[in-house]
Structures are given as C-alpha cells and as structure tokens.
C-alpha cells in the first residue's frame, strides 16, 4: 500500500527526514513513532504530496506521492496533525462539504461515528474545544470509508474514554481489511493499535518491527522484596540485567532475554514480594533511543 525508498526531505538547511525506506502492507495498522520533531508529520506530508521530496521516492497505492498525488487523494482519508475548518460552519456542514468533494455522502455513517465519539455535529467550529474539533476531523477522515487512512497524532485532545473508542474503531477498520498509517508519540496507544511500528529519530528510521517482536525484546521491569538485605554482586553479574537499584531488601532492575538465572538468584533466599511488569512499547522505545545515543 505504501512504499518509500530513501525518502528524504530537507527544508533548506533543516532536516525533515532522511533516507526513510518503509513498506506498509494492505490491511495492517502501521505506526510511525518518535518524539516531537522526529519527522513523523514530514513523512506523512510527503506521502500525501503536500511537500515535494528532496530525494528518494514514495508511492501510495502504486501512485507516486508527488506526480500522481490526486490519485492518492481519491483513495485516502486523512487527519492532519494541525487543521482548521471554517469557524462559522457546523461539524455536519464541514463533514458534508468534504464528503461531497470526495464524491461521497456523509449519510448515516457520520451520525454513527458522531454518536460513538460523542461529537456534536450541530455546533459551529468556533464553539468547539480542541477535543471536539479533533472528533470532527476524525469523522471527516473516516466518513467516506477509504481503503487507506493516514492519521497524524489522532488522539490529541481526546479524553481517555474517546481515545478508547478511537482504538476500537481502528480495530474494526483493521478487521474490515483497511490499512492505517498513524503517527503518534503516545506509545500505549501505538502498542494497542499497531501491528508494526517504525521508530523515527532525528529524521531517520531507527527500527521497523512488529509490536509483538519489539515487546518480546523489550526489558521487563522487576521489583523484588527479599527478607534480608540483597547483595549487589549476586544481581550485577547476571546476564541481561540492567538498571540495577538496591535499597536494602528491595531490588529493582530491568531484565532482557532468559529470566531463569534471575529467578534462581532471587529464590536463593525467601522472597517477600515479586512484581514483574509487562514490557511496554514505551520501555522498548526508550531503550532503543538510549542504545542509539539519543
């Protein structure tokens, strides 16, 4: 669905993205992750033909992102990171206008989405909060049921309940076989929504992996309370253990890979309490950034 080969964008002397090569398959939810300024939005704007590549190539649905951008636009739904609609128009008028431009009807699906996202379609834009404005943007991007959707920071401004609902909608779209590219710096959201993620740092791809394999490689955080003070030598020499902190009887550390040796060391004495946190994409992300000297 999306292919880029060494896609590069410089804004004069400022880097946008550099040598980004990625491939998004049909039916997958693909996350572009990275901190603010990493180049996520630049990558999406390049894919949408809003800006011209300085180097490399990109195709979306087989169409060149710059030369054939209108073909791309016929087939996608887009939520930009920043967007505005006319102040005086209601959400319904905005959604109907954009649907008509795409040759579609907003119809009952707009109402269904509005109900799920609790969006008020009858209030003018100037009266909407950021979250409600974001909901109108999401409905606008979804209402024509495109085969490919690109969302740039889609849950910005949404409250936790609506973030949850958005993730449910994303899940349903994936079930229907639609493809979604989303950028986010919200790791928990990406972990739940995405099949694969690309991590961007300072405009370059650091890693592209499935969420499952990234989580499998991510360190697990363990906190152990022993019945007598712990000896740093016992834990410090264990393979895969990092970020070791010992405070009397309390030992905290991260562990990657096999945990058998760790468990054997812990159970040499009596264990009062043991917490092993599920590895998170955020943890993996931070570790990857640290490993890359970021």
């Amino acid at each position: 669905m999306i292919e880029t080969d060494s896609l590069t964008k410089w804004f004069g002397r400022h880097r946008g993205i550099e040598d980004v090569s990625l491939s998004v398959e049909r039916g997958e939810v693909y996350g572009l992750l990275g901190p603010n300024g990493a180049g996520k939005s630049t990558a999406i704007r390049l894919l949408l033909g809003l800006i011209r590549p300085t180097g490399g190539t990109g195709t979306v649905l087989g169409f060149d992102t710059w030369a054939r951008r209108r073909e791309v636009h016929r087939r996608v739904g887009v939520l930009p990171s920043e967007f505005a609609y006319e102040d005086g128009l209601t959400g319904r008028q905005v959604i109907e206008f954009f649907a008509r431009l795409r040759g579609a009807e907003a119809g009952s699906y707009a109402d269904e989405l509005a109900e799920r996202l609790r969006a008020d379609l009858d209030r003018p834009q100037k009266q909407l909060s950021r979250g409600n404005h974001q909901k109108i943007g999401l409905i606008q991007a979804l209402v024509h049921k495109p085969e490919l959707m690109m969302f740039d920071e889609p849950t910005g401004g949404l409250d936790p309940l609506m973030q949850e609902e958005f993730l449910r909608i994303v899940g349903e779209l994936r079930e229907e076989g639609r493809t979604i590219l989303l950028s986010s710096h919200n790791m928990a959201e990406a972990e739940r929504a995405c099949d694969r993620v690309a991590m961007i740092h300072e405009g370059s791809l650091m890693a592209v992996e499935t969420v499952d394999s990234m989580l499998a490689r991510a360190p697990k955080h363990m906190r152990v309370v022993l019945d007598e003070p712990a000896d740093e030598a016992d834990f410090g020499s264990l393979t895969g253990v990092s970020d070791l902190r010992i405070d009397g009887k309390v030992v905290e550390f991260d562990v990657t890979g096999e945990i058998d040796a760790v468990l054997r060391t812990i159970t040499r004495g009596r264990v009062v309490d043991l917490v092993c946190e599920r590895p998170s994409l955020e943890h993996a992300f931070v570790r990857l950034y640290e490993d890359n000297g970021a």
Partner: peptide
Amino acid sequence: ERHFLDNLLCTPVG
C-alpha cells in the same frame, strides 16, 4: 497558514 489547505488538498481537488 491556518492549515485548512492541509485537509482540502488531501481530497481529490487539484
């Protein structure tokens, strides 16, 4: 400047 075109130019409008 207010990013209305970011949406408009992602529709089939040239």
